[in-house]
């Protein structure tokens, strides 16, 4: 009995296959936990849903479509252009600098409410000064690699 028990607990890991050993355990664990959640909470969730105590609305009510998707769009554009422009000026960090300025400007204008002249000027200054300072101090003084 003791013998078969220790056999049950013994493992032999083939090095060439060892990269899947732990991930498999984790995936089983994830699957079991998911089942457990469904079993324990699933029914109550459905009942709540029927009774209208819970909704499956993903976004908040009246969510700000422009600002949310605008942010994602601007960020994607920012990353793509940064890489692209960076290749034109190798190892100078100019890709970062030249793309960060318009990026910061567009995001600020996207977020700001009740735009007035003072805010506009501040946004412009902020969008120029912040990336330039970051580029100069980090990229040039500290020699950090920038796109």
């Amino acid at each position: 009995m003791g013998d078969s028990f220790s056999k049950l607990l013994s493992v032999n890991i083939d090095f060439e296959q060892s990269h899947m050993f732990f991930p498999k355990i984790i995936m089983w664990l994830l699957f079991l936990l998911f089942l457990l959640i469904v079993v324990l909470y699933g029914r109550k969730f459905l009942e709540d849903l029927k009774a209208g105590r819970r909704s499956i609305r993903f976004f908040e009510e009246n969510f700000d479509k422009i600002r949310l998707f605008g942010t994602i769009g601007v960020v994607i554009l920012y990353f793509v252009l940064m890489d692209y422009v960076g290749v034109l000026f190798p190892n100078t960090g100019l890709g970062f600098l030249l793309v960060s300025i318009p990026f910061m400007m567009s995001l600020s204008f996207l977020y700001v409410h009740d735009l007035n002249k003072k805010k506009t000027i501040i946004i412009f200054l902020n969008s120029i000064i912040a990336p330039t300072a970051a580029w100069y101090i980090l990229g040039n003084l500290f020699n950090i690699t920038l796109p």
Binding site: F96, S100, M104, Y111, V112, N126, A130, I144
Partner: peptide, 20 residues
């Protein structure tokens, strides 16, 4: 600092950090 100025700075610095 107003968020419309702070958030772009945060994203920019996060990019520097992530890249570096």
């Amino acid at each position: 600092v107003p968020k419309y100025l702070l958030y772009p700075i945060i994203i920019m610095m996060c990019v520097v950090g992530a890249y570096a």
